[in-house]
């Protein structure tokens, strides 16, 4: 009987944990990361995923001339500080938050519209014997309404 109960528990665990991790990311993006955009207006797009230490993500977006933007990139508390770089079409690094004490935001504007790449990395901790942590990482954009 105990075996069956354990199996049932595992089944529910398998079913609901993936959904919960997504739901946590939505809540994390909405309630935590979006706050980093203030006073900019969030564009409404949702980009969030569960990443594990050592994993990377990339985002491609066109930014328009004459607009003022804020990028906010946040990770769950259990993750190390998230690294991010902004690159132009020639792969030149325009900004790296490693040089700015791992800031979560970057404010910028462009003279001409450009497609940029945002490269995000969850660094690994020094302790290799420890199990790598996973958590939500959200990438959000805000602009100033003119």
């Amino acid at each position: 009987m105990k075996r069956y109960v354990t199996l049932i528990f595992i089944s529910f665990f398998l079913i609901f944990i993936p959904l919960n991790s997504h739901a946590q990311c939505k809540g994390f993006a909405k309630n935590v990361c979006k706050m980093e955009l203030v006073p900019y207006t969030h564009d409404g797009n949702y980009h969030a995923a569960v990443l594990t230490e050592g994993e990377e993500a990339e985002l491609y977006k066109t930014f328009y001339s004459g607009q003022e933007y804020r990028i906010a990139i946040c990770g769950s508390d259990n993750l190390p500080e998230i690294e991010f770089k902004i690159m132009d079409a020639s792969q030149n690094v325009l900004f790296s938050n490693k040089d700015k004490d791992f800031t979560k935001t970057w404010d910028f504007k462009l003279e001409t519209s450009q497609q940029l790449k945002i490269a995000v990395k969850v660094p690994t901790r020094g302790d290799k014997s420890a199990e790598p942590e996973s958590g939500c990482v959200a990438i959000m954009f805000g602009f100033k309404v003119k």
Binding site: A49, E56, K61, I139
Partner: peptide
């Protein structure tokens, strides 16, 4: 240039493509 931006996309990583949202489009 934009093709070049996508050049290392084959590596195993999460990739997001972000279009301007309807709100951003209207604002533009």
């Amino acid at each position: 240039l934009n093709q070049d931006l996508f050049q290392d996309i084959n590596e195993a990583k999460q990739i997001f493509y972000s279009l301007p949202s309807p709100l951003e489009t209207a604002m533009l």
